[in-house]
Design a protein around this nucleic acid. Structure first.
Length: 569
RNA sequence: CGGGGCGUAGCUCAGCCUGGUAGAGCGCACGGUUCGGGACCGUGAGGCCGGAGGUUCAAAUCCUCUCGCCCCGACCA
């Protein structure tokens, strides 16, 4: 490809809304252009990288025995009503209607459609299992799109769906996708990790996320360096925490705590450890009000609480709601004497506490000397509600958890029969019995992975593409295109490299050398070949790599061979 | 959805408080000098100051409404 014939517009400055490095560089390098909030055009260079990503995905998916198809982006509401998600999905689902006022949505995911396809065709266990995938444009009406392709509203995603006769079959399909995903991210040259994850609204029994490690990632992940346990903090379990030694029950007392509303204030005021204060967090859910009881020195994991409650909606109660539920201003709620309308759920780590402190459901007052068996004998729900963090004990070994951030680029779910049951996607087994198919679903963000690759591979001058994702592997710069000798050598190299199948861009523009160098660095082509008057006088060209930046002067005659060698490394 | 901010040239932004001929840098065009790390000088094109209404002799500037965008939070994955 000749630069002068392509469509490449780089910019010295990034738009002010670009906060993260990948977004800034993708815009500056002319890879993407924003059309509306969270909606981007892929410009020629950006699309080339996307295509390379998709080629890797297709290669590995096909190798795993999955078959590609493409489903409609626009989907009828009936299917979503059948699965129950027309109600459940909420405002992220972009809904629309046609001229006949029939409801449709722009698909944020395709479980309904694939299930509908399969249930029409597949009737027998003899026709199972299989795995179908597509690469499709999705739309999720994120309330806060940001970070360019990392959190867009319209985005390209590879989604795959496996269908099996039973859980054992799903295990095999799931395992195959797990290894396939590892191969894909390895092929992209990314530093990633696989972590246990919450299943979210897609549902199902188990899931893993693939995280590209990056400080700007939106997901927090814990990992045990000893045994390798890794999980999204939303899901992460925690090993046994140290608990204060039990003591003989003291009297239940009411203490005046004027203006002491936070755990630290109360603990300091009453001179007790924050871990001996039980904080009561009031939530409103679609299943009614809930009070979560957790240790004062810990944070609540809202995802865990939501799962325990079985809620699809869950939010911290507003001030006025807290007053209504507890009869006290925010900061003084407690389990003792709380309205029976509120469902009490306690974190399991508060169970060993004796003589602890909690709010008294009255302004400026707390209880001290509280003991579960005596003061709250009816409390029955003990669950894991803690948010894991740095320094927590590993749930699987004696290690200590580390905390880091990652970009979620892939997510695989064991769906089970959630959709096949809701939508009657059944088969007849050997015994002639009708059974729901057992499904898995496997998502992978194409644009997000490309963005994550940049997030992980850049410097002050621009992108440092991993070779497999670079829009072009080699940039051939002609510094003096109007000089006949330079033009002849550069044209010759261009032809010979193309004959060798090298994916290269030939900067034949009538621009100053500095401009070409800056552009090549910004876009980040892995290998650069420079032909200029100066070096050509010694019959040499300069070849360098973007990452190492080591320049070597090689005889013109061996330039092609040297370039090919660099591409092999 | 709540709080805050911003919409002025293709891009980044000044001007607005205190109303009176619309600005800079980058980019673009032309001429010249340059030519291995985003050159320099000169000339020039380019804006219904997001949109609608209002106040005023006069509105980019003040007021109201509206649309779009951004940030923080809530929330969602």
């Amino acid at each position: 490809m000749r630069w002068s014939q392509s469509y490449i517009f780089t910019a010295r400055e990034a738009p002010k809304d670009a906060e993260v490095v990948s977004h800034r560089l993708m815009v500056r390098a002319g890879l993407i252009r924003k059309l509306a909030a969270g909606i981007y055009s892929y410009l020629p260079l950006g699309w080339r990288s996307m295509e390379k990503m998709m080629a890797i995905v297709r290669r590995e998916m096909n190798a795993a025995g999955a078959a590609e198809l493409v489903m409609p982006a626009i989907q009828p509401a009936e299917l979503w009503r059948e699965s129950g998600r027309w109600q459940a999905y909420g405002v992220e689902l972009l809904r629309m209607h046609d001229r006949h006022k029939r409801d449709f949505c722009f698909g944020p995911t395709h479980e309904e459609v694939i299930t509908d396809i399969v249930r029409r065709d597949v009737k027998s266990y003899r026709q199972l299992p299989f795995n179908l995938y597509q690469i499709q444009v999705k739309f999720r009406d994120e309330m806060r799109p940001r970070f360019g392709l990392m959190r867009g509203r319209e985005f390209l995603m590879k989604d795959a769906y496996s269908f099996d006769i039973d859980d054992a079959g799903l295990d095999v399909a799931y395992e195959a996708m797990r290894t396939t995903y590892c191969k894909i991210f390895e092929a992209c040259g990314l530093d990633y990790s696989m972590v246990e994850a919450d299943t979210g609204t897609i549902g199902g029994s188990a899931s893993h996320e693939f995280m590209v490690v990056a400080d700007t990632g939106e997901s927090a992940v814990v990992r045990c360096p000893d045994c390798g346990y890794a999980a999204n903090v939303e899901k992460a379990e925690i090993g046994d925490l140290e608990t204060p030694a039990p003591a003989a029950a003291e009297e239940l007392r009411r203490a005046d705590t004027p203006g002491q509303t936070t755990v630290d204030e109360v603990a300091g005021f009453l001179e007790v450890e924050p871990s001996r204060v039980v904080k009561t967090l009031l939530y409103q859910t679609d299943k009614g009000p809930v009070a979560a009881l957790i240790r004062g020195d810990r944070e609540l994991n809202e995802v865990k609480l939501g799962n325990v409650v079985g809620a699809t909606e869950l939010r911290l109660a507003r001030e006025d709601e807290v007053e209504e539920l507890s009869g006290a201003p925010v900061g003084f709620a407690g389990p003792v004497g709380l309205s029976g309308d509120v469902r009490l759920i306690a974190d399991q780590t508060v169970r060993p506490l004796t003589n602890f402190v909690c709010g008294a459901n009255a302004a400026d007052a707390h209880h001290t000397g509280v003991n579960w068996d005596r003061d709250l004998p009816d409390l029955a729900e003990w669950e894991d509600l803690l948010l894991a963090g740095r320094g927590d004990p590993c749930p699987r070994c004696d290690g200590t958890l580390e905390l880091y951030r990652g970009i979620e680029v892939g997510h695989i779910f064991r769906l089970g029969t959630k959709y096949s049951e809701a939508m009657s996607c059944t088969y007849t087994d050997e015994a002639g019995e009708l059974k729901p198919m057992v499904m898995g679903c496997y998502g992978l963000g194409i644009g997000r992975t490309v963005a994550a690759a940049i997030e992980q591979n850049h410097d002050d001058d621009g992108i440092i593409w991993p070779l497999p994702l670079a829009p072009h592997e080699v940039a051939l710069l002609s510094l003096d295109p109007s000089d006949p000798a330079v033009a002849q050598v550069a044209d010759g190299l261009y032809d010979r490299l193309r004959e060798k199948g090298v994916d290269l861009i030939y900067d034949d523009r009538d621009e100053r050398p500095g401009v070409k160098f800056k552009d090549a660095d910004l876009i980040g082509f892995p290998v650069r070949v420079v032909v200029g008057k100066r070096s050509l006088a010694e019959d040499r060209v300069e070849i360098s790599t973007r990452r190492q930046r080591e320049k070597m002067m090689v005889p013109t005659a061996s330039a092609v061979a040297t370039t090919l060698e660099l591409l092999l490394d």
